[in-house]
Write a protein that binds this DNA or RNA. Structure first.
Lengths: 203, 203
DNA sequence: CTTATAATTAGATATATATTAAATTAGATG
DNA sequence: CATCTAATTTAATATATATCTAATTATAAG
């Protein structure tokens, strides 16, 4: 049920240690040991929180030898124009509160250029970018056309994607793979984090 | 500290019973006894949750004789274009998930007309509306100019308000009174709910 | 195979919180 | 003042969760 998802999402952000972890990760990826040191907790505690953040799709993980590096979900970073993310970001960089981070501007420009390069004037997707970062921008752009908070049948999702590109099956799979959406019993819903980003970009 | 506020805000929405209360209140105001019946809990439990929702500015209360009627914070209702609010609203009205509620459209139109009636083309506020609902729309419009998540000194707030109207003291007081902002040691910050709305209306 | 490092798991503890029943308070009315 | 109703408070309980220590697992390297 959708209620559980909303609750789980808010629970993930309802703990000071987890917010602090996100603030630290806003500076760049860190492994568990380092996070533990900086927050004066044990690695076991980091594991505990990482599980909750992971469940809410707020972080990514990358393994290198026997070290696991945590990073903010790419979208979370890009969405820091929102208030909570703004706070996380500013805290991370010790910037005076009134100033915007140059990254904000840079990300905006990157998005703009990727969107204008991959979509036609009529709004069709010419082809799916091979580069991950660009692909994610393209997926995010398309998912912005869905209504946050409603459920879609597979048929409806296919129709929706076909507005942009004929290969709806690949794109639908990418939506799931990159956690933009989740599927349950053939019903598709946007994930909470993605909804949140959607709110931000809503006019 | 701002961290606590963010955490408290998310905690308020991190409980299924509280989300259900909001869903029920989306249909209209209800008193504690009725809420308790509908949710199969005791009135004491409702009191408990009401305290948390009140602390997060999510509900309003109105006393009539010895009955207290709870209702959604006016702004929460108007913000239901956001995903969580959308879910609350749709659940409340048993609408097919794809359909928008007519109220959404109505509120949008009301806002449009109030804003164009009270502000000049240059964006100055001509006078403060006497009618509560209109006043709230005007306040919401102005607060949209602030950056969510940052702190402002009183001087900065005054300067900000003077863009719109010379009587900054009255408007500043209204911001506090209607819980758009809170003041601590002379530092002003937008309240979490208002931040949330801000995200939604951000371009 | 042994050793080293990072992460996870398991078990224990403490704190927080959701809930209830019972007692109390607040307000209205006779 | 007595009574009624709604709400709150208090105290108790149960569940959840944040944290730690100690044991275990995963991966790499000698």
């Amino acid at each position: 049920m959708q209620l559980d998802k909303i609750v789980a999402y808010h629970k993930a952000l309802a703990d000071p240690t987890r917010i602090k972890i996100l603030i630290l990760l806003a500076e760049g990826e860190l492994n568990g040991q380092v996070l533990a040191e900086k927050l004066f907790v044990t690695p076991a505690t980091i594991t505990h929180h990482a599980a909750k953040l992971r469940a809410a799709s707020l972080i990514h993980e990358r393994r290198e030898k026997n070290t696991i590096y945590f990073s903010l979900n790419h979208y979370f970073i890009n969405a820091y124009g929102t208030a909570t993310a703004n706070i996380i970001y500013k805290n991370a960089n010790q910037l005076p509160e009134g100033e915007d981070h140059p990254m904000e501007d840079h990300n905006q420009k990157l998005k703009q250029s990727v969107i204008s390069n991959f979509f036609t004037a009529a709004g069709r997707l010419q082809h799916i970018p091979a580069q991950l970062k660009k692909k994610l921008i393209v997926l995010e752009h398309m998912i912005g056309g869905l209504e946050p908070g409603r459920s879609y049948t597979e048929k409806e999702i296919n129709e929706f994607i076909k507005q942009y590109h004929d290969d709806f099956a690949t794109i639908r799979r990418e939506f799931i793979m990159h956690q933009f959406m989740s599927r349950e019993n053939g019903i598709y819903t946007m994930n909470p984090l993605e909804m949140w980003m959607k709110w931000e970009t809503l006019k």
